[in-house]
Computed example of a mutant assay.
Amino acid sequence: MNKEKILEIKNLSQHFKLDKNTVVKAVDDITFEIYKGEIFGLVGESGSGKSTLGRSIIKLYEPTSGEIIYKGNRISDKKIYKKEKKYLNKSMQIIFQDSTSSLNPRMTVADIIAEPLKIQGIYNSKEERLNKVYEMLNLVGLDKSYINRYPTEFSGGQRQRIGIARALCINPEFIVADEPIASLDVSIQAQIVNLFKKLQRKRELTCLFIAHDLSMVRHISDRIGVMYNGKLVELAEANELYNNPIHPYTKSLLSSIPIPDPRYARRRNKIKYDNSMHDYSEDKPKWVEISSGHYVYASEKELCIYDQELNII
Rank of each mutant, 00 (worst) to 15 (best):
N194E: 10
D283K: 03
I175F: 00
P180V: 09
A177C: 13
G225I: 03
S281P: 08
F196K: 03
Y242P: 01
M227W: 08
I246N: 09
Q189V: 13
E237P: 01
R266Q: 15
R201Y: 12
L199M: 08
S255N: 08
K198M: 12
E237Q: 14
K198P: 01
E240R: 08
L254A: 04
Y249M: 07
N239E: 15
Q189R: 14
P245F: 11
H212E: 05
P258N: 13
K284M: 07
H247M: 06
H247R: 05
S187C: 10
L184W: 06
I257P: 04
F209N: 06
G225N: 01
W287R: 02
S276I: 14
Y228H: 15
N269K: 15
L254Y: 02
L241E: 08
Y242R: 05
R223W: 06
V226S: 02
P262I: 10
L254M: 10
S221Y: 04
K251F: 10
Q189I: 09
K197I: 11
L184Q: 04
K202T: 14
I246F: 04
T250L: 06
L199V: 02
E240T: 14
I246P: 00
R201L: 12
D185A: 13
Q191L: 15
P245C: 07
F209T: 01
S252C: 10
R268Y: 13
G230N: 07
W287A: 04
P262L: 09
V233S: 07
C207P: 03
C207M: 12
A236H: 02
P248R: 04
F209Q: 02
L232C: 07
E282S: 15
S276M: 13
I271C: 04
Y273Q: 03
K272I: 15
K202F: 05
V193P: 04
R268V: 04
V176F: 09
P285G: 13
Y264N: 05
R218N: 10
A211Y: 06
A238I: 01
Y280L: 13
V233R: 03
A182M: 00
N239A: 12
K202W: 02
N171T: 14
Y264A: 13
R266F: 10
H278E: 10
K251T: 04
L235I: 05
V186M: 14
R268Q: 15
Y249F: 11
P260F: 13
S256Q: 09
W287N: 00
T250A: 09
P245Y: 09
K231V: 04
K198L: 12
L241W: 10
E204L: 08
P285L: 12
T206F: 05
N275H: 09
N239T: 08
S256M: 10
L214I: 08
I175P: 00
N243H: 12
L253R: 06
S256K: 11
E234A: 04
L195Q: 08
K286C: 10
G225K: 00
D222F: 07
L208E: 02
K272L: 15
V186G: 11
P262T: 02
N244I: 11
K284R: 14
S215K: 05
V217L: 03
I210E: 00
N229F: 15
I220D: 09
A265E: 15
V288G: 00
D213A: 13
E204W: 00
L205W: 06
L199W: 06
I220T: 07
I210D: 07
K197V: 11
L214G: 07
N275L: 08
I224S: 02
I192H: 01
I271Q: 04
Y242L: 02
A177K: 05
M216Q: 12
P180T: 03
V288Y: 15
K198G: 02
R223M: 05
